[in-house]
């Protein structure tokens, strides 16, 4: 997996947004969901988006996925426009809820994107097996989702997003519905997954410790209109045991994120 990730030539930024604007027209008038968003994400980065609700972090992710169409500015994913990037299977998307089909086994759920994308039977089998191993769910292929805990279901949904081997993983508060103990463990596993696969991660969260613990770059956003108020490059090393959260650096970054959030709220 690492080989494929590094095999492709890194032609510029994975995600590049320039003066990106998105206005929703609602019955209560226009809502400025994104205003003049400029951001470049390089290959292999782990970028977290943090901010209060309504700051446009999820909207930005949906724009990257081509699920929303920006009303102004430019956005490229792997050098393509988001729609073309989607057709080129540039990314896997992990939603807030695991959203596994209850009538499919765990293996069947991971096979779903492979069926739609038309992989061969042999390839499907291999990829289901490999991705299950990647998220530590070997042996659960023939279980139904209701037989798994919430944390395991979310791991299965990550496996589903990884199965077709996209270089970019978009995650929208994937652990938001889980309790803190499970969330800590999944954060740790996500980091090791990231280290093993070398994928580029875009990760939406509303938890400051989660953002600081995971990211190489933290994008702080603020609402009304949704915009970027601070971008923080993390000085933390790539190896991050859970107790790094008690270190000086960690606390300093968390403090700066908190300041950024507060400044954004006051300006709004």
């Amino acid at each position: 997996m690492q080989a494929t990730a590094q095999g492709r030539a890194p032609a510029g930024s994975v995600v590049e947004a320039k003066a990106l604007n998105l206005t929703f027209h609602t019955n209560d008038g226009p809502v400025h969901a994104l205003k003049d968003v400029n951001l470049a994400v390089e290959r292999g980065e782990f970028v977290s988006f943090i901010g209060p609700s309504g700051c446009g972090k999820t909207t930005f992710l949906r724009c990257v996925a081509g699920l929303e169409t920006p009303t102004g500015g430019s956005l490229s994913v792997n050098g393509l426009d988001p729609d073309a990037a989607r057709r080129a299977r540039a990314y896997g998307y992990v939603f807030q809820a695991a959203g596994l089909y209850p009538w499919r086994t765990i293996g069947g759920n991971i096979r779903l994107p492979l069926e739609i994308m038309g992989f061969s039977e042999e390839e499907k089998k291999r990829r289901v097996r490999d991705t299950l191993a990647l998220v530590d769910l070997d042996g659960f292929e023939n279980k139904y989702p209701w037989q798994l805990s919430g944390g395991m279901q979310q791991r299965a949904s990550i496996a589903r997003a990884l199965s077709f081997d996209a270089d970019l993983l978009l995650m929208d508060e994937p652990f938001g519905a889980l309790d803190e103990i499970v969330r800590d463990r999944l954060n740790e596993e996500l980091l090791s997954l990231w280290a093993r696969t070398g994928k580029t991660m875009l990760f939406v969260t509303h938890s400051i410790p989660e953002a600081v613990y995971l990211s190489t770059k933290i994008v702080v956003m603020s609402p009304r209109p949704g915009r970027i108020s601070d971008v923080i490059d993390s000085p933390l090393p790539k190896e991050r045991p859970l107790d790094i959260r008690d270190s000086r650096d960690f606390i300093d970054i968390a403090h700066r994120v908190r300041e950024g959030l507060r400044a954004g709220m006051e300006a709004a």
Binding site: F95, G99, M117
Partner: peptide
């Protein structure tokens, strides 16, 4: 909406959405 968005991210056709999601969900 999330289930439908998920299939959109795979670039699923209307037919695939019907057979793989809508029909089994309706049983």
């Amino acid at each position: 909406a999330m289930q439908l968005d998920l299939l959109r991210t795979y670039g699923a056709t209307g037919g695939q959405t019907f057979w793989k999601l809508r029909l089994p969900a309706s049983l």
